[in-house]
Design a protein around this nucleic acid. Sequence first.
DNA 1: GAAAAAATTTAGATTTGTCTAAAAATATTT
DNA 2: AAATATTTTTAGACAAATCTAAATTTTTTC
Lengths: 219, 219
Amino acid sequence: MSFSITEENYIKAIFHLQQEDGTVSTNDLSAVLQTKPASVTDMLKKLKTKKLLSYERYKGVRLSAEGRRLALGIVRKHRLWEYFLFNTLQFGWDEVHEIAEELEHVTSKKLVEKLDAFLGYPRFDPHGDPIPDSHGKMTVRQQLNLIDLPVNKMAEVSGVGSQSSELLELLKHRNISMGTKLEVKRRFSFDHSLEIRIKGQQPFIISQQLAQALFVKLV
Amino acid sequence: MSFSITEENYIKAIFHLQQEDGTVSTNDLSAVLQTKPASVTDMLKKLKTKKLLSYERYKGVRLSAEGRRLALGIVRKHRLWEYFLFNTLQFGWDEVHEIAEELEHVTSKKLVEKLDAFLGYPRFDPHGDPIPDSHGKMTVRQQLNLIDLPVNKMAEVSGVGSQSSELLELLKHRNISMGTKLEVKRRFSFDHSLEIRIKGQQPFIISQQLAQALFVKLV
DNA sequence: GAAAAAATTTAGATTTGTCTAAAAATATTT
DNA sequence: AAATATTTTTAGACAAATCTAAATTTTTTC
């Protein structure tokens, strides 16, 4: 069985939304895919007949084992291409997502395996997200949200919560990127902002929203 | 203005058919695109309104300057990706075309330029076809370096890189002279040596230095 | 230069993925 | 638990790209 680019994008979106909570709603999908809820309903019915997901009207949706396998394949391709664009072609880490959105739909299985080998079987993409291997397995990284990082523990940035250009723009301006070493100096309960200090720089304050969008690991 | 993958495939097909004779017929297009003539007619009308070609009913079709520019851009992408697949990812030269058919539709301009730079601005793809540069210009090849001769293409020796007696001595010993017909059987990336076969003889291996000193033309 | 053959176009239908507007089901508020 | 609000689905329509069958134009043959 083969799938259109549109179908693949639905499956990928459901996969990502499912990470948080078990079932995914029509409205959530409508929001991330930028299509009307009515169109989402139509597509869900279609994907159900293709056995990629279980769906009952008004009850939300969940990927089947088959659907999950497909999703992992797409995510694998997306992240391998991101790695290629960043490491081989020297793109900025804020540019790679958009291009990978197209490359991820190229179908050749052999291409994916050759690319993986050429890149040296990388396990994380430029945003710190794990790259599924050819069996769909991902290395889990002991990564925590910056908002949860204990005060005065040195850590390094290992992931971001979204690929939005707004976030990436802010990070660029704040001079934060993958591997940046930092620690939390203080917490302000009023607005949940944090004072952080990047190694070798003066401390400064970041918002709760930004802190929640950053993942770090202890060093 | 942007174009669908289908529209791009029509433009590319017209471009290739146009190489032979000036105008292209509905039936020829129908044959290479594997669609019914009626469908071709519909698309030609559409592409005419987009000013990519000139078309009058029953009279065949010709690309406009705009259409030619678009076609060259697609051919450029196709051949750069073929070069990448063959030279970087070590695909067989018979496998690259099919995969490049998908990659050629990825839209990022910057990707094409970065890929071109990464590959070292190659001027010919693995089949020996010229790669248009970013302005759409192609090198016309009459004579090429033996090191660039695609595998399994019969060619004849048409020139040498120097007149040094050392070179000529070696050529005499190897039994190679002007007009000798040969083909490349294999390439060894380790030392860039080539296995070649002179028509009617057993294959043997020559060094990179020797290959670079020989010019051939396709026969 | 007709008649026959081939190529091309028109007309009307189909599939995919989308939309709007209205109806139905579910969730929230009071 | 009734009223209200929100979410989701249904019904019917539309654009893109295709098809088949029939009509038209061009080309070839005699």
